[in-house]
Every structure is written in C-alpha cells, then in structure tokens.
C-alpha cells in the first residue's frame, strides 16, 4: 500500500473540515472491509489521508424509539445490528442483511454506512434499507441534507456525496402494525460470496390485503434498484400467489443486469422474479405475525 496518513477526529465538524481540505484525497474509514482492500488494490492511489469515523459518537450510535424510529450510525458494524433486540423485532430486513454480509470476522467490522458509501450494485444492505424506507443523513461544509437511500447511489461505486461530505447516519421510520420485511440473495454457496441477485421487500398488510409494499433489487442494474412501480401495482390487492406473481414479473422486467462470471442476463432476470416472490412471501408472513 502507498503511504497514507491516518487521523481519528472526534466530531463530525472536524471530519468534514478534514475531508473538505483534502478535496478528494481523503476517505472515511468505517470497518475498512472495502476500503483497505481497495487501497491495497490501487483503486485509490490518489488517496493519502484516511479519516477514521469510529471515534465520532454520531457514527457509532444506535438510537431507537417506537414513535420516532431508528437511527443507525454510519459506522455501526453488522454484529451490533443483529445483536440489538429492538432492531430484530421492528426491522427484520436489516437483520437478514447484517447476518449474511461476509462471515463472522467481517460482520465484526463491516457497517451499513460503508456498504452504502461503497455503492456497489451488489451491496447486500442497500435493498433492505430501501425496503425499510431509509434516509441517509449527510453532513458537509454547507450543513446537512437528507437523501432517500434509493437516490443515494448514482452508478457502480459512485454516489451523491460531494466535496467534504460524509454520511453520518441512516434513519428508518417506525414500522406500523401489519409491517413485515425481508432481504434475500442468491449465491452459489451458502455464505461468503457476492450476490448474483438480491431482493429486499417490505409490506404493510390490512388483514389479507396489501396496503403498501416496497421492492428493491441487488446486482441487476448499475445501482441498487428501487422498483417503485411494484408497490404502486400491488397496493390494494390480496396477499396471494397471483399478486406475488405480478410483482415477480415486474421485477424481472425492471432489471437491467449484465452478463458476467456470476451469471447471465437471462439468469439474473429469472432470479429477480423468484427472489421477489419468495422475499415478499416472507415479508407477508412476518407482517401477519406483527398484525
């Protein structure tokens, strides 16, 4: 690895100043499970300053209240997410993602904030966060702004963060009764692989009727893909196989994957159909438990 400097600021203000002064030659460090690999691999040869986010209180906090919802600090690692009883009850889709990113050691470090800022289409936490209506809380030299997670990534490895900006936390609304969510991906092994395709879904049920739904897909477009049309189409319909088949078909149509070593276009589109149906079914089952 080329020479880097390391700094560990204790406030968001300080970190933003450092990033702004560095003008693109600094990167924020959360768990490092992407960043260190990329620094070694030569992707960030222009980077000469690593700004550790883990000593900034806002990036490390998990705050939840049943009315206000959840705020997840950008550097909170996966194990703290699935180890949190309130999150596992109210935000099941986040638990699914946190428990399948990497293995035990990676989960000890990897954060959802890092997953989002790394902005790969296959990032496993991103569709789950979209399904849970997440909002990215960004701080920069001109103050803060809030961006819906579905609008955060702008291409493979790129996102809306501008000069001097950093992700502070991610906020999730409090789920209502009748809410259920899920994330699942397809990989050829049982663990430790990159998604061929993934689906994050959520529903709000009113009895057996879908009041609203959100579906987002991984690894089948240049960014994680929120398919808002599915929610529009299945709202008001019964939570049955016909409705799920319609959702699956729409997911398949919306996906614009590429062919690579993990799968062909055709295969990935097929997976979108299957994963969307299966994931919605789990979200529906969870919503019923939660009615």
């Amino acid at each position: 690895m080329h020479w880097i400097d390391f700094t560990s600021p204790h406030s968001v203000r300080e970190a933003v100043e450092l990033l702004n002064d560095a003008n693109g030659s600094a990167r924020v460090l959360a768990g490092g499970t992407d960043l260190l690999v990329q620094l070694r691999g030569g992707r960030f040869d222009d980077v000469n300053l690593v700004v550790d986010g883990k000593n900034i209180p806002e990036l490390n906090e998990i705050t939840y209240d049943p009315e206000g919802g959840l705020t997840l600090g950008a550097a909170v690692p996966c194990y703290r997410i699935y180890g949190n009883a309130a999150i596992s009850r109210a935000y099941p889709g986040l638990i699914d993602s946190a428990s399948l990113i990497g293995g035990t050691q990676i989960q000890g470090r990897a954060s959802f904030g890092g997953n989002l800022c790394n902005s790969t289409p296959s990032g496993d936490s991103i569709p789950a966060m979209i399904a849970h209506s997440a909002v990215a809380n960004i701080e920069g030299p001109d103050g803060h702004r809030h961006v819906a997670v579905e609008d955060f990534c702008t291409g493979p490895g790129s996102n809306v963060l501008g000069r001097g900006e950093m992700l502070v936390s991610i906020s999730f609304p409090a789920p209502t009764s009748g809410f259920g969510a899920n994330y699942m991906r397809f990989i050829p092994r049982n663990e430790m692989d990159i998604a061929v395709a993934g689906a994050g879904t959520s529903v709000v049920l009113d009895g057996d009727t879908i009041k609203s739904a959100r579906v987002a897909l991984a690894a089948v477009a240049p960014t994680p893909l929120y398919v808002s049309a599915i929610g529009d189409a299945i709202a008001g319909k019964p939570a049955n196989d016909d409705t799920l088949a319609e959702a699956g078909q729409m997911a398949k149509d919306a996906a614009t994957p590429i062919t690579d070593m993990r799968g062909t276009i055709e295969y990935r589109k097929h997976l979108c159909d299957v994963l969307t149906r299966r994931s919605l079914q789990i979200a529906i089952d969870r919503a019923k438990e939660n009615a």
Binding site: F6, L29, T33, D52, Q105, I106, G108
Partner: peptide, 13 residues
C-alpha cells in the same frame, strides 16, 4: 471481544 481479520484492520486503529 470480537474476532476480526487482522489484515483488514490498520495497526493504528
């Protein structure tokens, strides 16, 4: 208290 891969931790961390 957590296992980590030490190749993905900086010594200064």
């Amino acid at each position: 208290g957590r296992i980590v891969t030490s190749c993905l931790v900086l010594g200064v961390e």
